[in-house]
């Protein structure tokens, strides 16, 4: 457990020293979201209708952009190899890295989403549901993304390949995340969608670090 906390602290510290990487993904999220009204037109009714989907798709893309740095630097300088040799199970260390990744790329999106939701004229209640859905959904993005990041480690054209592998797997999170807000706006209640997102998160927490570890071991061979 100590090793887990140490890994999280280390990755957070590294992210704090290289702020630009974290901020770039955040600004990417803001820009993508702001592009939609410019492309579609400023009618409020329409914007309110598309807001959940737009915010979620933008969150997906922003999370994917930052996935590359999850293992790449550690792979390059050999830290990853040392981690795989350590007595602590590699899956635990991977979980720590994923948690740190979520804290630096997912959590800021959750906090920023209501501000961007205001641009789309979402009601305060819908903003709350959006935040909860992102809070449950963005960890799933980090977890599933870790598998893809581990598989494409040191592979030719890794970045584009990563999106090809990971985006289809993100679809359930997108559907339930955006669906929660839409269901709430439609008066159906978001409980079902949020429960399913929670179920995805539970599955991801259990299985994803394990699969990512297996993928890392292949990359380290």
């Amino acid at each position: 457990m100590n090793a887990f906390i140490a890994i999280v602290r280390r990755d957070l510290l590294l992210a704090a020293r290289r702020k630009s990487e974290v901020l770039t993904a955040l600004f990417f999220f803001m820009i993508v979201v702001s592009l939609f009204p410019l492309g579609i037109g400023p009618e409020t009714a329409m914007l309110r209708r598309i807001a959940p989907g737009v915010l979620w798709v933008a969150a997906l893309l922003a999370a994917m952009l930052s996935l590359n740095r999850l293992f790449a630097a550690d792979h390059q300088d050999g830290t990853l190899e040392q981690m795989s040799l350590s007595p602590t199970p590699l899956a635990l260390l991977v979980s720590g890295k994923v948690l740190a990744h979520w804290l630096t790329s997912g959590l800021p999106l959750v906090l920023l989403a209501p501000v961007l939701g205001l641009q789309f004229d979402l009601s305060p209640r819908a903003l709350g549901v959006l935040m909860v859905s992102l809070l449950l959904g963005t960890p799933v993005l980090s977890l599933v993304g870790a598998i893809g990041a581990a598989l494409t480690l040191g592979v030719r054209g890794g970045g584009v390949l990563l999106s090809l592998l990971v985006l289809p797997l993100y679809i359930p999170a997108l559907i339930f995340g955006a669906g929660a807000v839409e269901a709430d706006v439609a008066g159906l209640g978001a409980g079902g969608h949020l429960s399913l997102l929670g179920a995805l998160l539970a599955l991801g927490v259990f299985f994803a670090p394990w699969a990512a570890t297996a993928a890392l071991r292949i990359a380290l061979e």
């Binding site: 592979v155 292949i218 061979e221």
Partner: peptide, 21 residues
């Protein structure tokens, strides 16, 4: 795409196995 991007066939097989599972 993943198996085509990895040059070593054994590594490509294993990575492909994980993504298909």
């Amino acid at each position: 795409a993943l198996t085509a991007a990895i040059d070593d066939p054994r590594r490509a097989d294993k990575a492909g196995a994980i993504i298909s599972l």
